[in-house]
Design a protein around this nucleic acid. Sequence first.
DNA 1: CGGGCAATTGAAATACATCAAGGCGTGTGG
DNA 2: CCACACGCCTTGATGTATTTCAATTGCCCG
Lengths: 279, 279
Amino acid sequence: MEASHRSNLRKHPVVKDRPIASLQPKLASLLPLKVDAEAPSVRCSCLACPAHELNLCAAAKTKGGPDSDRRSDAPQLASTVYTIPARRSICHPKEWSEFVPIVCDGWAASSIALPDGRRQILSFLLPGDIVSMASLLEPTHGRSVQAITQVTYRNFRRSEIKFNLLTFSDLLERVARICNEERAQADQLALDLGRRTAYERIARLISGLVDKLAKRGMTNGRTMEFPLRQRHIADATGLSLVHVGKVLGKFQEAGLIEINGRSLTIVNEMELRGVAGWP
Amino acid sequence: MEASHRSNLRKHPVVKDRPIASLQPKLASLLPLKVDAEAPSVRCSCLACPAHELNLCAAAKTKGGPDSDRRSDAPQLASTVYTIPARRSICHPKEWSEFVPIVCDGWAASSIALPDGRRQILSFLLPGDIVSMASLLEPTHGRSVQAITQVTYRNFRRSEIKFNLLTFSDLLERVARICNEERAQADQLALDLGRRTAYERIARLISGLVDKLAKRGMTNGRTMEFPLRQRHIADATGLSLVHVGKVLGKFQEAGLIEINGRSLTIVNEMELRGVAGWP
DNA sequence: CGGGCAATTGAAATACATCAAGGCGTGTGG
DNA sequence: CCACACGCCTTGATGTATTTCAATTGCCCG
């Protein structure tokens, strides 16, 4: 009895089905991949991009035409483009170099993991997303970033960003604002994980993603591409893989959403937001 | 059946025992309070204080003697001191003025709440803690801060901080570093809430607090003042009040900790950190 | 064709939450 | 001085949301 008490205190869940960590380092995937035939060749929505909002990205310049839309007098920075296949790791938790990656195309997940396999996804990275504003000035450790779909991203040099940040104070203001938004989102995540039910968490995750996609013009009416596996949803909401499947099933039964293959349709937006407890 | 499905999706837990919100606006508590006889009159550990690390606080100057310990050439700022009784609110979620509060003495909790009463504590504020680094440059909405014990804090003017930040770049570096630490802690919180068991969460909360207290010299060997109610622990770990009581009971049974009144003793630190899954 | 990945489903286990009652200490007002 | 309310903790019984386990299926890819 006594002994079993002790061992009870140590009990860790054992995570079994984690095939996701098995990257397949084949030759083909080391080369820049061909673009998926269905997707437009460049879907990078540079206009909704923080990198553009900060006016970092030299690539965005080509899009806005003359300087009518420029929001800072800071110069734009050089960057290197990479394209990697799904499931490949973009950043390892300990390998944060002098570069800051920004996603240009595709979906990625930024997560933090326990040695025993449990992991928590902190945010999904869509085109235009940076891993974390705090990483602009300081290298960020502990987080790992993994591609969900094929991902194209640009690496900026931190030293250059930093120099610009210190030189152009309006840039700093903008970083501070985005930093604050990030914090607010982290707060909400904690509230979700700590105090909301599975139904609420999943409904909120979907609602949030739909908004994000809409802002980037990545929706097609009420339908959109939705490359998340149930495992991603599970790891983002702190739930088990199986339970996520069941809740999603209920949502479809109840006529809130529809999921077919890799596409999601919002059927009853009001009800979905109701479940999510949206304001 | 169909109808019950629908209503199931909307089910919100109802939170009942929340006596904590009942501030008692008596006359006495509006005046600066007498200092508790047991506590030393000024326990403000300005040396471990971010405000000191940033060299913001003019009060810290008196402590360090001559300028031997100054880490920035930025001038120190004026601030106003307030003392409020336990359970009083320091900041309301929508009332973020142009001031940035920093705790000088006592414990406070920074939290975010749902309309139905559920709430999540995001961090405990000990002497030297600022609510959020991001709030230095931008007003922070949504969070509320509540005193746990009697709390003394200083209000700094954001405009002044901002000016200094922009003027003295070494300050900015330091803010960035602390900002990054904050982000790391937020990540850990999400991991805890999403992927750890009640035992782990509570063990981690305690271990973390002990470390923080030790860093500030607020421990007395393995014993320390511990003013948290079980409700605070519950709201910080996303658990129910009752369950927290049971887990704490187990911890004491197993000889990990001891709690008497308002004081905590770490009996078996190794085992406690083991349960916490400390590295 | 095999094999890894993914979704689904049912049955069982459990880690929690909820409900309810009682005790203890403390401040308050009669 | 005593009631009394209130905040706080405890404990047991009961309920349930969620996890774990296990088996099956389909799918895509090499």
